[in-house]
Simulated assay, not measured.
Amino acid sequence: MMQITCSLIAGLPGQPETTASVNGDILTVDGVAYDLSSVPEGGFAEPQGDHPFAGRIERTGGVLGLSLRWSYDAATAEPIQPADAPVLSVVAGAVPDPIIRKPAAPEA
């Protein structure tokens, strides 16, 4: 399981939105897989190089805890997002969209 804190960032127009998924200790962000299996129980890792993480990655009680920079399209999002960063618990599969979206326009 992963506890993912999403650091929301309004992207530039036309910039792709962040997508992520979890499969065991592998977190895939925007098509790039990050193997977090080397983070020890009760310990942490400091990401190096080019990555989407904000801060260190920790493992406590078998749960990986991390902060992820999450870019979104401001044109489809409500102008005011939560002041507190959304925290998502994901066992496996797609990471849910943490963005509060504008209502869909009615179809003509």
Rank of each mutant, 00 (worst) to 15 (best):
M1Q: 02
Q3S: 15
I4K: 10
C6K: 05
C6Y: 00
L8V: 09
L8N: 09
I9W: 10
A10P: 15
G11N: 02
G14H: 07
G14W: 05
Q15N: 08
Q15M: 14
Q15L: 11
Q15R: 13
E17T: 10
E17S: 11
T18S: 15
T19M: 05
S21T: 11
V22T: 00
V22H: 06
V22R: 02
G24D: 03
G24E: 01
G24R: 02
D25H: 09
D25F: 07
I26A: 06
T28E: 14
D30Y: 07
G31C: 00
G31A: 01
G31Q: 06
G31E: 07
Y34A: 04
L36D: 01
L36T: 01
V39D: 02
V39K: 00
P40T: 05
E41P: 10
G42D: 04
G42C: 03
G43H: 04
F44E: 12
E46K: 13
E46N: 14
P47M: 05
P47L: 09
Q48N: 07
G49P: 04
D50W: 07
D50L: 13
H51S: 14
A54C: 04
A54E: 14
G55Y: 11
R56Q: 10
R56H: 07
E58T: 13
R59G: 10
T60F: 05
G61E: 03
G62E: 00
V63K: 09
V63M: 10
L64N: 04
L64D: 01
L64C: 00
G65M: 00
L66T: 12
S67H: 10
S67E: 14
S67F: 00
L68T: 03
L68Y: 04
L68H: 03
L68N: 04
R69M: 07
Y72D: 12
D73I: 08
A74Y: 01
T76R: 14
A77Y: 12
A77H: 12
E78R: 15
E78H: 07
P79E: 14
A83L: 14
A83E: 15
A83T: 14
A83H: 06
D84R: 10
D84Q: 14
A85R: 14
L88N: 09
L88C: 05
L88K: 08
S89I: 02
V90W: 02
V91A: 12
A92C: 04
G93E: 09
G93N: 11
V95H: 07
P96S: 05
P96L: 02
P96Y: 04
P98A: 06
I99S: 13
I99P: 12
I100L: 15
R101W: 06
R101Y: 06
K102A: 12
A105E: 12
E107W: 02
A108I: 08
